[in-house]
Amino acid sequence: SEYETMLTEIMSMGYERERVVAALRASYNNPHRAVEYLLTGIPG
């Protein structure tokens, strides 16, 4: 799925699956924002 592709691409940058899933959830599946959250911390 498109979601799995995003997940895999972000994980390939060296992040753990659960952190990527949390970041995508926080960003409403916006991959650019999710990466930003992984770099700066997930808000909330």
Score class of each variant (00 low, 15 high):
Thr40Cys: 09
Gly41His: 11
Val20Gln: 00
Tyr37Met: 14
Tyr37Glu: 03
Ala23Cys: 04
Leu7Asn: 00
Ala23Glu: 01
Glu18His: 10
Met6Ile: 10
Ile42Met: 12
Tyr3Leu: 06
Met6Lys: 04
Asn29Ala: 05
Tyr37Gln: 05
Val35Thr: 05
Thr8Gly: 09
Met6Asp: 03
Pro31Leu: 13
Leu24Asp: 00
Thr5Pro: 07
Asn30Ser: 06
Tyr15Lys: 01
Gly44Ala: 13
Thr40Trp: 13
Leu7Ile: 15
Met13Pro: 01
Met11Asp: 01
Leu38Pro: 00
Tyr37Asp: 02
Met6Asn: 06
Ala22Thr: 07
His32Arg: 11
Thr5His: 12
Gly14Gln: 02
Ala22Asn: 07
Glu2Leu: 12
Gly14Lys: 02
Gly41Val: 10
Glu18Trp: 12
Leu7Met: 07
Gly41Arg: 08
Asn30Trp: 03
Ala34Phe: 03
Arg25Phe: 09
Leu7Lys: 02
Gly14Asp: 02
Thr5Arg: 15
Glu9Gly: 08
Leu24Thr: 00
Ile10Pro: 00
Arg33Tyr: 08
Met13Gly: 04
Ile10Phe: 07
Tyr3Ile: 06
Tyr28Ile: 08
Val35Lys: 09
Val20Gly: 01
Gly44Met: 12
Ala23His: 01
Tyr28Gln: 15
Arg25Cys: 06
Ile10Gly: 01
Glu4Ala: 08
Glu4Asp: 10
Glu18Gln: 09
Tyr3His: 05
Pro31Tyr: 15
Met6Pro: 01
Glu16Phe: 04
Tyr15Gly: 01
Glu18Leu: 06
Glu36Val: 10
Ala22Phe: 05
Ala34Arg: 00
Ala26Tyr: 08
Ala22Gly: 05
Thr40Lys: 11
Ile42Glu: 11
Glu9Met: 14
Ala34Met: 02
Met13Thr: 03
Met13Gln: 07
His32Ala: 14
Gly41Ile: 10
Tyr28Asn: 15
Gly41Ala: 10
Asn29Gln: 06
Glu16Thr: 12
Leu39Ile: 13
Ile42Arg: 08
Leu24Asn: 00
Glu36Gly: 05
Met11Phe: 03
Glu2Met: 11
Arg25Met: 12
Thr8Asp: 11
Val21Pro: 00
Thr8Ile: 14
Asn29Asp: 08
Leu7Val: 15
Leu38Lys: 00
Met13Asn: 03
Ile10Ser: 00
Tyr37Ala: 06
Asn30Glu: 09
Asn30Leu: 04
Met6Tyr: 08
Tyr15Glu: 02
Glu9Val: 12
Pro43Cys: 07
Ser27Gly: 07
Glu16Lys: 06
Thr40Asp: 09
Leu24Ala: 00
Ser27Pro: 00
Met6Ala: 06
Arg17His: 06
Leu38Tyr: 02
Tyr37Phe: 12
Ser12Pro: 01
Gly14Ala: 02
Met11Asn: 01
Ile42Thr: 09
Ser27Met: 06
Glu16Trp: 05
Ser1Gln: 13
Arg19Met: 15
Leu24Ser: 00
Pro43Gly: 09
Val21Ala: 09
Met11Ile: 10
Glu18Ala: 10
Arg19Val: 14
Ser12Phe: 06
Gly44Val: 13
Asn29Met: 11
